[in-house]
Design a protein around this nucleic acid. Structure first.
Length: 275
DNA sequence: AACACATCCAACCGCGCGGTA
DNA sequence: TTACCGCGCGGTTGGATGTGT
């Protein structure tokens, strides 16, 4: 990327002086939004040329999809979304756009960033490859059940049926859900009631409300510190009952969470070699 | 307060696929 | 059949911001 000057508002090269790169300005955003609202979001090269923006069609498309699109949601990946990402990635791997279809308003770019910054970081801390069976099993048998527990604990925003629907969200193939007694099995809270379905974004009407972007601070208060949360849960991980968001942001960035995960990881995998 | 380090995320790139002439 | 073009995807980068010392 040697020919790429990110902070310059001037063209990178005299040769391609008509092409702007780097951060978008508010004016450019406004132009693009207005143009797309009139002409639609197709034929991006045409849009780039006709709008007067000195951007490539690619750049316009990316800006629109990842930032300017009206239904785009950014920040605060919810517990449900974290679960979906883990689950769908376990099925499809780095098929970010496909995964994004099941997370309304989320872009493939954001999911990819989430995976790289949070999940891969955990793998790095655990000194195992993110694609290794060991890491995948840890995800499935430890992290995802814990996520489900916490989702169930959020009685106001997550439901039994919702979580179950997430577990079977893949339209094409069944998800390998642990049976009772197996590692990773989770007993869903039957007192919750369904409020939303996790479907591909294309199947969700404009008026349907995916869960509002609840803040992670909400999650902290509701899931971990809220009344009725029994840390000695169904999966038998209660001895690490402080792994939740105590003073942190979420399960991936909270140091206490990290150490819980590492403790749990080591506890459960003592027979493995980290190398 | 200043610096170093870590993390996040917007935006780029190259590549490959599908449609069309 | 082939060449070209536009688009979408996954990988990568580096500036901005946050956190620790």
């Amino acid at each position: 990327m040697e020919d790429y000057e990110r902070n310059s508002n001037s063209p990178t090269h005299e040769d391609d002086s008509d092409v702007r790169k780097g951060p978008w300005t508010e004016k450019e955003d406004a132009i693009l939004v207005n143009f797309v609202s009139v002409h639609g979001d197709a034929r991006w090269n045409h849009i780039a040329r006709s709008s007067g923006l000195k951007r490539t069609g690619k750049s316009c498309r990316l800006r629109w999809l990842n930032y300017l699109r009206p239904d785009v949601r950014r920040g605060n990946i919810t517990l449900e979304e974290q679960f979906m990402i883990l689950k769908l990635h376990s099925l499809w791997g780095n098929r970010w756009s496909k995964i994004a279809q099941y997370l309304p308003g989320r872009t493939d770019n954001e999911i990819k960033n989430y995976w790289r910054t949070r999940v891969q970081k955990q793998a790095k801390h655990l000194r195992c490859d993110v694609n290794s069976n060991l890491f995948k099993e840890t995800m499935r048998n430890v992290w995802m059940p814990r996520l489900v527990e916490r989702i169930n604990a959020q009685s106001s925003s997550a439901t039994c049926e919702q979580v179950e629907s997430m577990m079977i969200a893949d339209p094409g193939q069944p998800i390998d859900v642990p049976s009772p007694g197996e590692p990773g099995y989770v007993q869903f809270n039957p007192h919750h009631h369904n409020q939303q379905q996790f479907l591909p974004a294309t199947e969700i009407s404009a008026t349907s409300s995916n869960s509002p972007a609840e803040t992670l601070s909400d999650v902290q208060g509701g899931a971990v510190n809220g009344s009725g949360y029994d840390p000695v849960g169904q999966t038998g991980f209660g001895e690490f009952n402080d792994w939740g968001c105590v003073g942190g942001n979420n399960m991936w960035t909270n140091d206490e969470s990290l150490w819980f995960l590492q403790d749990q990881f080591c506890h459960e995998t003592t027979s493995y070699s980290y190398n």
